[in-house]
């Protein structure tokens, strides 16, 4: 569809120039949108919220299972906790990242509850991210956690 009349409108040279700048503007817009989208995807890929939620629930479930198991138990958690801090508080397991330092700074708070046994003692502790593995022990009526 040719809107231009050489006699009345733009000449050929101006037409070419016009189309050229039009394409440049559209390419600029495409690059801008592409960069924004890739930045968004990258940000989503780096999120650790799911991992923190998963760890808190998995560890709480394991503590419940250890309470339910008969006799003495020593269990080494197979998951990788290298980048996280596991904080055992009364009835709750908090998981946050090293840079968050204290759970008050962590948002959203990732924690899950475990059921303490009334006739057993749980030794609350903070397991740092330096070590790669978490060990949970039940000896007699004492349940404790440590780095390995």
């Amino acid at each position: 569809m040719n809107f231009f009349n050489e006699k009345r409108g733009l000449g050929k040279k101006a037409q070419v120039e016009h189309e050229f700048y039009y394409i440049i503007a559209q390419m600029f817009l495409i690059v801008l949108i592409a960069v924004a989208l890739f930045t968004f995807i990258d940000d989503v890929a780096d999120q650790t919220l799911f991992e923190k939620n998963y760890l808190s629930k998995d560890i709480a479930l394991i503590v419940n299972s250890i309470y339910a198991s008969p006799g003495d138990v020593s269990y080494t958690y197979p998951g990788d906790i290298k980048n996280f801090i596991i904080d055992f508080k009364p009835g709750q397991v908090y998981v946050y990242e090293e840079f968050e330092q204290y759970e008050e700074l962590a948002y959203p708070k990732c924690f899950y509850s475990f059921l303490e046994g009334s006739n057993m003692v749980f030794e609350y502790a903070v397991v740092s991210a330096d070590q790669s593995q978490l060990k949970i022990n039940k000896l007699g009526n004492i349940v404790g956690v440590e780095n390995e």
Binding site: F50, N53, K57, L61, N64, S65, Y67, A68, L115
Partner: peptide, 19 residues
């Protein structure tokens, strides 16, 4: 489609029952 949570209610229930 990005999941941020996992449902463990079934496992938790069975552990409680066993306990």
């Amino acid at each position: 489609f990005v999941r941020t949570d996992v449902d463990i209610s079934a496992s938790e229930s069975y552990v409680l029952v066993n306990r």
